[in-house]
Simulated scan of single mutants.
Amino acid sequence: MPVTEILEKPARTKSKKSAFREWLDSVLFAVIAATVIRWLFFSAFVIPTPSMENSLLVGDYLFVSRLHYGTTTPVTPLQIPLTHQTIWGSNIPSYLDWIQLPPFRLPGFTEVKHGDVVVFYLPVEHPDAYQKYSSVLPELHPHPLDQRSNYIKRCVALPGDRLEIMGGQVYINGIKQVNPVRMQNEYFVSTTTAVNEENVFHKNGITDFTQFTETFDDSIASNDEFGYIVKTTGDLAGKLKSYDFVKRIEPVFMSKGLKEPFLFPTTNLLDWNKDNYGPVLIPKKGATIPMNAVNIALYGEVIKNYEGNNQVTLGSNKITLGGKTLESYTFKQDYFFMMGDNRHDSADSRYWGFVPKDHIVGKAAFVWMSIDPNPVSFLNKLRWDRIFRIIQ
């Protein structure tokens, strides 16, 4: 029986990677891992404005969980990893909008609830909406959905809720809501004389204050009354009562019926302001509303920009879809009403409207670092008491 000789090929010597190739592989792995973590699990954000004070401060660095509500798939896949809107340190766009995919939300383990601090894409950076709101937010630019600016606010009303603000107090479905623990409002502090601002206001954690002038509402004080307008929490304002030169402290709210400019919606049919707003029904998926003049003002932009409808024409007294006048409309997705905890210094849903569900990014979880942009001294630059603070 013939025997076949098996000849083994000599083993190839595996070439050793160069130091540059190993470094390049490590960087590539780190970028891919960071991109996946940032998209799927959590993202890091920094607070740039005082709209959430005194709950969140300018200079707070926080982690936002994308797992809570479920992360969404990318709309613009042609993007430089780990960027948002622009390339670092420049105004060069970091994405191409040649391909835009429909968003799909992966399952989360909870839904948005009343009082949640939520990060979301700013809806009015929609290409058909941004110019209308440039007087309130002059920095607006049009972007695809997942490239719009990230905003952080507190959810005060859910889909299907009827929201009303009366005298600065939020009511949902007629029930008075519990205010955030560190919510900030405006107060008039009447004093017998000018005060040492460093020893009185800064010492009590109050950094936003203005001496009272005639530019404020005349109903706040009498002609001969001296004082200050301060933005702070109720507890901190209460501390000022212990000073013998403080005569009284009164919260400052706009009067009911006094129409505020630049408020949402832009219409003369409603005389709302930031302290007296609504009642308004928050759009809910499957809910049907009649198309009267007020509802066109309230929900017309929703129907045109965020519901996936084509050929929508808005008028003051009618709205058409595909050339047909709508007598009623059934919403295709849920919406939310968001407000900042700094109630008199927040560009929120009172000024630009509802937040669609597909714009929700995640839930703010905790502050991992906090840097004071205007410290009293270098030693106070880092706010040690805020590190790893759970966001409430």
Rank of each mutant, 00 (worst) to 15 (best):
K176A: 03
Q392C: 00
V280D: 01
Q131K: 14
N150R: 11
A157Q: 05
Q211L: 11
M338G: 01
S346R: 07
T193P: 00
H126R: 07
Y329S: 06
H114C: 01
T232D: 11
V124C: 07
M52T: 12
N309K: 14
A30H: 13
I371V: 15
I32C: 13
M52F: 09
V136P: 01
I37F: 09
A157T: 08
F336N: 13
S190R: 15
L122P: 01
L96W: 07
K332E: 05
P159M: 04
N310V: 06
N223T: 12
A347Y: 10
Y133K: 02
R21H: 10
G308C: 10
A347I: 04
V195K: 02
H68Y: 12
K256E: 05
M291R: 08
T76N: 09
K259R: 10
L106Y: 11
T213E: 10
K259W: 06
V230C: 13
E139D: 12
H141Y: 07
L240T: 11
P142F: 11
T330F: 06
R148N: 00
G308F: 09
F226M: 15
F41C: 05
V302T: 02
Y187P: 00
F388T: 02
W384E: 10
F336E: 03
Q131P: 03
S94E: 00
T76L: 02
D128M: 09
S370A: 13
